[in-house]
Design a binder for these strands. Structure first.
Length: 587
RNA sequence: GCUCUCGUAGCUCAACGGAUAGAGCGCUGGCUUGCGGAGCCAAUAAUAGAGGUUCAAUUCCUCUCGAGAGCACCA
């Protein structure tokens, strides 16, 4: 449809001005539906034709004739506005959507062999505490981006890089050794990640105490901290006792984290563990040293000079020969390429790591890895809580599990207000889906680059621009479809029955979907899709409120409307699923 | 101190450099005879400030003010 209009415009331009347009003709929708269904703005042609945009619009409007698809063309100022034959449009779009399911499945089988491969690394938690809201945002966002990229036909590999070694891990271990009394998550009946996390915060409390009592300036001067450092050394030497403790606690934490992932519907294709990868980078650096890409300082540390690229000098290996953070990441980046030969490798992290990845990518480039240019760092901003920033060490964290519990309770109350006879099993299932929709949508409707202000008490609602609103709209449609024998045969449906403006608005909305998904994926921004779904739901509810489907004036109108709302439902479901949100049949 | 990001309605967020800056929440007033009121309709309200580039600026550039982040032999 759009393609057809684009061609008409191209032809007219060629005929009237003798210009062959190579780039895509951009078709938009006018701000007011009265102006036209679609429009083309003539500003860009002004230079080449040496005419004013207004004149160009006039000339083109005269040249393009109305036909089976385009009903009328109007020029308003510099804009060329098209009115579409609605019957054809509805038929096209509804049948395309209703047919889509089977087509997609087939296409997927054939194409999967030729698809380009894209890696996306996200979430990447530490094994010393539960998932906090920052990780939660990364997880939800990463999952949705992966879905979107798959939708535009990439083969996507979702990666979770677990940070399971380092001083912070030893802190939790040390605290457990000192005060754990051989308790286990099972004996205390709490999730493993929370169990471990409690010891981590305990460690920090004790260190602060010591620091205050002894009036030390730096935490690193405290005995506790020194003991933790000692433990890290032992860990690196493979000390039997330390390794045993490490394995035990890591497993606890990991089991807990996996439960949370399962609860929020996040799956990974590949797990990396820093304990297994942190040494890879070292070899690469030692080779680079021989080639003169980096140099050894007098104190023995190996450093690279990035000042000519607007970055600083960066140490790559400590004077004792061990790796730092970038070194590890260099190793993991190479490992990824060796294993997957990716076409693109995305890493999604919080915005605070932006400098780190600038450094990393520059180093990869200097190391002469040809795939360095295929690495992309995506960022998301943080979540701000009313009391200030989230800091796990100060215990001000809203952790994901507690948040999910709270929301589930609230959802249960809402459901019971509306339906007292619901079975407890059904209640739980619905509450889970609805509360997840509320949280996920709240995080996804905001541009990733924008910080989210999050007040657990106020921010999460089930009304207005929310996930549950979308689920509700879907459930409404399903409710209608359940009540009537409907077998939509789009070829036999008379779409000329759809004469109302609200129906037309819905039709145009559905049509937008394909472009929206593409844009959301290309911009790495699920918020584009979220916004769209709200508009779609709102258009439907407007229509729903004003016109009846089951009691339509004629059978023909009813059939056409059924085809229309079924298309809406399919798009809503598809859109929600791309955001990682489940649709729901009854609310 | 240096670097980066961001300032849109009372609040939380939208707006490929393009037509009259849109939503939700809150506040105010409506919607019983229709398929689910987690809904619909109406009313109110905003581009931090000053310059510049452009036919056209919330969007690009400069400065001022304000908020946040980053600048380790931490991760």
């Amino acid at each position: 449809m759009i393609f057809y209009i684009q061609n008409q415009i191209k032809k007219a331009i060629l005929k009237k001005f003798g210009i062959k347009i190579k780039q895509e003709i951009i078709i938009e929708q006018p701000p007011d539906a009265k102006m036209g269904d679609f429009c083309f703005s003539c500003f860009l042609l002004a230079n080449e034709t040496k005419k004013s945009p207004k004149e160009i619009a006039e000339i083109l409007a005269q040249e393009i004739k109305s036909d089976k698809i385009v009903r009328e063309i109007k020029n308003i100022g510099p804009y060329l506005n098209f009115f579409i034959q609605r019957k054809e449009f509805f038929k096209n779009i509804c049948s395309a959507i209703l047919k889509q399911k089977q087509k997609k499945a087939r296409a997927r089988c054939i194409a999967s062999l030729f698809k380009s491969q894209i890696l996306i690394e996200f979430s990447s938690p530490n094994t010393n505490k539960p998932l906090h809201l920052g990780h939660f945002r990364s997880s939800i966002l990463g999952m949705s981006l992966a879905n979107l990229l798959e939708e535009i036909d990439y083969k996507v590999i979702k990666i979770n890089l677990i940070n399971d070694r380092g001083i912070h891990i030893c802190k939790a271990m040390l605290a457990y050794q000192k005060w754990g009394e051989n308790k286990t998550p099972e004996s205390e009946k709490i999730k493993g990640d929370h169990f471990v996390g409690n010891f981590y915060t305990l460690f920090d409390k004790e260190v602060k105490k010591e620091q205050e009592v002894k009036k030390m300036e730096k935490i690193t001067e405290t005995n506790f901290y020194k003991e933790a450092s000692e433990m890290l050394k032992k860990w690196e030497q493979g000390d039997e006792e330390v390794m045993k403790l490490w394995k035990k606690m890591n497993q606890w934490a990991l089991d807990g984290l996996k439960k949370t992932y399962q609860r929020i519907g996040i799956k990974f294709n590949k797990w990396y563990f820093e304990s297994q990868t942190y040494k890879i980078g070292r070899e690469i650096i030692l080779k680079a040293l021989k080639k003169g890409i980096c140099y050894q300082r007098k104190d023995g540390a190996i450093e690279i000079d990035l000042t000519q690229y607007g970055l600083d000098k960066k140490v790559l290996l400590r004077s004792n020969g061990t790796s730092v953070y970038v070194t590890q990441d260099i190793g993991v980046a190479k490992l990824k390429f060796d294993q997957f030969k990716f076409n693109q490798s995305i890493i999604l992290t919080g915005v605070e790591q932006i400098y780190h990845f600038q450094v990393l990518f520059k180093i990869l480039e200097l190391l002469n890895f040809k795939w360095a240019k295929k690495c992309v760092h995506l960022i998301h901003e943080m979540i701000n809580l009313p009391e200030g920033k989230m800091k796990s060490r100060e215990g001000k964290v809203v952790d994901s599990d507690n948040l999910l519990d709270e929301m589930e309770k609230m959802a249960q109350e809402e459901i019971q207000k509306r339906d007292q006879n619901i079975s407890s099993k059904e209640l739980k299932q619905r509450a889970k889906k609805i509360s997840l929709a509320a949280i996920k949508f709240h995080l996804l409707k905001v541009n990733p680059k924008q910080a989210i202000y999050f007040d657990p008490r106020k921010s999460l609602s089930f009304e207005g621009a929310t996930g549950p609103y979308l689920q509700y709209t879907y459930a409404r449609i399903q409710s209608i479809l359940r009540k009537i024998q409907h077998e939509i045969i789009y070829n036999a449906t008379d779409f000329s029955c759809l004469k109302e403006e609200e129906e037309w608005e819905l039709g145009k909305r559905i049509f937008e979907f394909f472009n929206i998904t593409k844009r959301a994926a290309q911009d790495y921004n699920p918020a584009i899709l979220s916004e769209y779904l709200l508009k779609l739901a709102s258009s439907f509810n407007k229509f729903y409120h004003q016109y009846s489907i089951l009691k339509a004036k004629s059978k023909e109108i009813q059939t056409a409307r059924l085809a229309l709302i079924q298309s809406v439902a399919i798009v809503l479901k598809k859109g929600l699923n791309l955001l990682g949100i489940e649709e729901i049949e009854k609310m």
